[in-house]
Amino acid sequence: METQDWEPIDSADELRELLGTPKPAAIAKERKTLHELDRAWLAASPFCLIATSDTDGNCDVSPKGDPPGFTLILNDSTIAIPERPGNRRADGFHNILRNPHVGLIYFVPGRGDTLRVNGRARLVRKASFFDQMVVKGHRPQLAIVVEIEQIFHHCAKAFLRSELWRPESWNPQALPSRARIAQALERPEDPIEELEHYYGPSYAEGMYR
């Protein structure tokens, strides 16, 4: 890759010179415990992204989703996220075992603002609070318990720029189907008809088992 015309940023001073300093309100909004409005946000959110890294800095971002309120509030500074059946790679979980620091962003469909949580995580395989995380008769396989170190609400500019929630801007047909992507990159020996069936309407039936 040609990089001769790149002008890199190599220091915090250079970065601040380019971006400027944050406004006092942007700094002061950080908290370490849940506010009543944070609790309301978590109760309304069906989806979050969890960022992790191992001790070598290798990163992972994993989506987590369930009915609104899937994140359980254990106390003013601790939350728990249930884990459901997935592809079993467990990249983020392996990272947490090596490095407990995590970053989360909670979404509410149609809202451009988000809730950000940074903290320290641990994995729990069994606890009495699992009874509160049952969905469609299924208990979580494990839970990610996060001790909050930093929490704040984030503005909507990225969502406004991307028009993410504007249905008229959506074009899912611009890309091949999930089945065709799987055949090209992951399962080349499987017939496309079988993959289309696997990723079809019946796919949702296996979400909790």
Rank of each mutant, 00 (worst) to 15 (best):
residue 103 G to R: 06
residue 79 I to R: 00
residue 99 N to Q: 13
residue 77 S to W: 11
residue 64 K to W: 01
residue 94 H to Q: 14
residue 57 G to W: 02
residue 98 R to N: 09
residue 59 C to S: 14
residue 83 E to H: 12
residue 88 R to K: 14
residue 70 F to M: 12
residue 83 E to V: 12
residue 94 H to T: 12
residue 67 P to Q: 11
residue 85 P to I: 06
residue 78 T to G: 09
residue 87 N to L: 06
residue 68 P to M: 08
residue 71 T to Q: 05
residue 80 A to Y: 03
residue 77 S to I: 08
residue 70 F to T: 05
residue 98 R to E: 14
residue 53 S to K: 10
residue 59 C to M: 13
residue 53 S to H: 11
residue 75 N to F: 09
residue 97 L to W: 07
residue 68 P to C: 06
residue 66 D to H: 09
residue 53 S to A: 15
residue 101 H to D: 14
residue 94 H to S: 12
residue 64 K to G: 00
residue 62 S to P: 05
residue 101 H to K: 15
residue 89 R to L: 15
residue 66 D to P: 02
residue 94 H to N: 14
residue 76 D to K: 10
residue 83 E to F: 10
residue 62 S to C: 04
residue 53 S to M: 12
residue 83 E to T: 11
residue 97 L to R: 13
residue 53 S to D: 07
residue 74 L to G: 07
residue 59 C to R: 13
residue 61 V to Y: 12
residue 80 A to H: 03
residue 88 R to H: 11
residue 69 G to E: 09
residue 100 P to K: 04
residue 72 L to S: 10
residue 80 A to V: 02
residue 60 D to T: 10
residue 95 N to V: 03
residue 52 T to M: 09
residue 87 N to V: 04
residue 61 V to S: 13
residue 67 P to G: 07
residue 101 H to F: 15
residue 77 S to G: 15
residue 82 P to D: 03
residue 81 I to P: 01
residue 57 G to F: 05
residue 66 D to Q: 09
residue 72 L to P: 02
residue 86 G to L: 01
residue 70 F to V: 04
residue 69 G to K: 02
residue 62 S to T: 13
residue 63 P to M: 06
residue 69 G to V: 03
residue 73 I to N: 05
residue 74 L to D: 05
residue 99 N to A: 00
residue 64 K to E: 04
residue 97 L to C: 09
residue 52 T to G: 14
residue 101 H to Q: 15
residue 58 N to P: 03
residue 86 G to Q: 04
residue 84 R to N: 07
residue 83 E to M: 12
residue 87 N to P: 00
residue 72 L to Q: 10
residue 90 A to P: 05
residue 86 G to W: 05
residue 74 L to P: 01
residue 85 P to K: 05
residue 84 R to T: 08
residue 72 L to W: 00
residue 77 S to A: 11
residue 53 S to E: 12
residue 75 N to M: 05
residue 68 P to H: 09
residue 79 I to N: 03
residue 78 T to W: 08
residue 81 I to H: 00
residue 69 G to Q: 09
residue 68 P to E: 03
residue 81 I to N: 01
residue 88 R to S: 13
